[in-house]
Design a protein around this nucleic acid. Structure first.
Lengths: 311, 311
DNA sequence: ACCTCTTCTTTGTCCATGACAATTTTGTTG
DNA sequence: CAACAAAATTGTCATGGACAAAGAAGAGGT
């Protein structure tokens, strides 16, 4: 029954297709269809005619995956030789323009100096205050980490480690603020298939710092459930975050759908990279262009609320 | 480019094959071959001929998977009606025993009584101690939540809410323990496509409670990167967690690959639902059958370390 | 110029069927 | 009853065709 896989060739001679899927994150179907269409990868075959990928090609695939995650399309990448890809990978980061001020994070990560890193984060937040920390330092750090990953300067797990520590830092700050029962009451989430929890936490921290009561539903909440949650509570504002990787059209549709389903008294805010530079707004939705816009938006809400009955 | 999976209606109308694979842990190929050979499952087809599994059949499949994990063979299970399977499953779980003691969580969730719920969690942990809390209360709560979701008693976002609160609770406890620099130093993570962060946190809490120094890489770390991380640090133990939805075969292959790549002095531990009842172990890998096994395992490590040179 | 709507291209996933090695079960014989 | 051979079970891989959803390019309106 247990059908142990024929593969399990250690990286010595080559890997089976299942192993490559595990290692690269590219599906079996995708690997086969690339081979058919682009002629790469071109694995050898073992005695039974099953694909055997040389370590070199797996490395090449991993590089392609890395560039794809950064936004490139496969068609172009698969036609280039490996050398060109490595070069692209290096170039990409140079254009972004670096924040030298946060370079200290890299060596700390490389040395796995967790305690030191944690202390550094805590200290900077204490020094600058939560709001400035979230608006200036954290985005700079995120950018630096992203660049470092793209250039191969840091490994994926080091990025994970950073994310983990930063999340801890923000969570404990939010928890310490503990503005329970305050107004406005904000329902915070992202729609299905979004995963960038760190961004959500940053927003939550800013909201909490401005005295709002935040209820985070985490990621991947279906629209119907968002409506359900908003109706069940005395929610004043529903705030959605879309990462820049999220297709704009889909985001717009979701917002329209949500706006129609929510009661009129509930405000709907949308933010995140996907909204950036998108001047045109969806009717009835407040676009939050960047983190700095959160504080004024909250002030607006309070003013409006005050000018109304206030009852 | 990103071709996010088309997948997953909430279970209202039915699920695509990819969603079923994720939900049940049964591979796409397996699902198709069962249909061909045994006539079950028998999904409907959407407008374009793709399989659409009714929620009922997915439930049936989940049952079958559960019994297979206990050692039964598919051929027998697939010919039985659902009723017979439920009965078998009930017999098996009767030994485990249901927990009425945690029913209080449901109404608190239904009323979105976040503060009350948070306080309740904190109080119970304080009363029972972190170790007992993680070993007894948290799993009971998880089971209750899972059941509630299966029966439609609670919504998905309420499950998210619970997860969020519980994660906060555990994180702050771990942070408070702060056994920095202690030994053994444990590298904790899950492989690609695993997302059950809560389980990881539970393990981390137990390890920290027993004086280990835990470094959590979060979820979805590729194998190559796990090796890199372990080599870069003075890691004593690499611990992996596999949720029960994770296919046993893939887990085994990952472990073999990892064991071969890690230095001999680094221990490799594996735990989680996928390992449960799996008497057969991978050579050189310590299987952690359940949460209770963690404390003795740590004691073993310390004893071994002491009997050696201790240098 | 910017945004939106339409058309064309790219790309990942799905389908159907066939095949086969690893494992378990069954049958046979000393 | 042990041991070995034969048969049945079962998951994964291969091939080639197909198409919907995401992206890019082009047309037109304000």
């Amino acid at each position: 029954m247990d059908n142990a896989k024929p593969e399990s060739s250690p990286a010595g001679t080559g890997m089976g297709i299942a192993a490559v899927e595990r290692d690269t994150g590219l599906g079996k179907d995708t690997l086969r269809v690339w081979e058919r269409r682009y002629g790469f990868p071109q694995p050898g075959r073992d005695v039974f005619g099953e694909r055997v990928y040389p370590a070199e090609q797996v490395e090449h695939l991993r590089l392609i995956k890395r560039l794809m995650d950064q936004g490139q399309r496969p068609g172009a990448l698969l036609r280039q030789p490996m050398a060109a890809l490595s070069e692209q990978c290096a170039n990409a980061s140079a254009t972004v323009g670096a924040d030298d001020a946060v370079d200290w994070v890299i060596p700390l990560l490389k040395h796995r100096d967790v305690d030191h890193l944690r202390a550094e984060l805590a200290q900077r937040q204490a020094r600058d205050g939560l709001e400035r920390f979230v608006i200036e330092t954290v985005p700079a750090l995120n950018r630096r980490i992203g660049d470092g990953w793209m250039t191969g300067e840091i490994e994926i797990f080091e990025e994970h480690l950073y994310t983990e520590l930063m999340q801890n830092q923000l969570r404990s700050s939010i928890h310490a603020l503990g503005s329970r029962g305050a107004r406005p009451q904000v329902l915070l989430t992202t729609v299905k298939e979004e995963e960038h929890l760190l961004g959500l936490l940053m927003v939550e921290a800013l909201l909490a710092a401005n005295g709002a009561w935040c209820l985070s539903l985490g990621a991947q909440t279906p629209i119907a459930d968002i409506v359900g949650a908003a109706q069940g509570t005395t929610t004043d504002i529903v705030a959605l975050s879309f990462s820049s990787a999220y297709p704009w059209r889909k985001a717009r549709d979701s917002l329209v759908e949500l706006r129609a389903a929510l009661p009129a008294r509930t405000e709907l805010w949308a933010g995140g990279g996907a909204l950036k530079g998108r001047g045109r707004q969806v009717p009835g939705v407040r676009a939050i262009d960047n983190l700095r816009a959160i504080t004024p938006a909250l002030a607006d809400w309070k003013a409006t609320r005050a000018s109304l009955g206030e009852h």
